[in-house]
Design a protein around this nucleic acid. Structure first.
Lengths: 154, 154
DNA sequence: ACTGAAAACTTTCTGCC
DNA sequence: GGCAGAAAGTTTTCAGT
């Protein structure tokens, strides 16, 4: 997530110091408060209080480990455009997609398809099976898939 | 990133304990080694050594903070399908897209478009401007955009 | 090769200024 | 926002299985 100079109409009101802290935490989510403080000319206590405040405001949702999908065995990746039936609500679609651990992310979108689904599978065989199962979900009418060739950014 | 039972043809060979550690770290990337050890019936020392090993093998790429894009001022999100000119290489496209801090992620894909670009902007006005600038990149022929309505999963 | 225990060190937490 | 003491976590060393 970029922390670089966005307008904040929602009243988030981060100052440059907050941005500095978040920027460093996005590079090393386990950095100590003292280490972060060195960059911002702040004591570890002050850093901690700022991060706590950002956390309670919801700006910081949490911390996580960044894993290599390929080394975990997820070597094939695809995007599936999902076209729903007339009566399918986003809630129904969510309920359908949640079943699949292969679904990394999913969004409802404007345009021809109703949703865009990001999938990870172990190989093309596995990918085919997952797409087939998604197409058979009651709320899904049809789908159109693109296989990811390479990740340019992200 | 899902850590749930994938085949690992690349020889990653994680055992169930590794998966348990990674699973917990994906929920709390700043969890203490002792805390993680309680779940896995392992000492803090053993947990740390396993995570160090996963890190040196590249399975663990690092740790990061999870931020709320909307609260940071990025309230509009879109996917742009990019159609390149005949001679545009993935490297050229990457060089073009890197310029934009609004580009959250980008992939080259099979199918009609050459690439899929995930954008975040502060509002639709900002989004329009970014899409316009991307369309003017020399390697880009045309594009087709979908605005994200809601994030179902991810 | 992997694990645990304890000592030494570092970080985080809490109360106070 | 900083400081200082207490609590908790981390890291190193040594040894067991």
């Amino acid at each position: 997530m970029s922390t670089h100079r966005p307008p904040e109409p929602g009243g988030a009101s981060l100052d440059d110091t907050d941005r500095l802290l978040l920027n460093h935490l996005s590079r090393d989510g386990r950095a100590s408060y003292a280490e972060i403080g060195l960059l911002a000319n702040l004591s570890a206590t002050a850093v901690r209080r700022r991060i706590d405040r950002l956390r309670s405001r919801g700006v910081v949702r949490g911390f996580t480990v960044v894993l290599d999908p390929a080394l975990l065995g997820w070597q094939t990746e695809a995007f599936v455009e999902v076209y729903c039936r007339e009566r399918t609500s986003p809630e129904e679609l969510l309920a359908s997609l949640r079943q699949f651990p292969e679904v990394v992310a999913a969004w409802t979108v404007t345009g021809d398809p109703d949703a865009l689904v990001h999938l990870r599978a172990s190989d093309t065989r596995h990918l085919e099976a997952v797409i087939e199962r998604i197409r058979k979900e009651p709320g899904v009418q049809r789908s159109r898939s693109s296989v990811v060739l390479s990740q340019l950014i992200g």
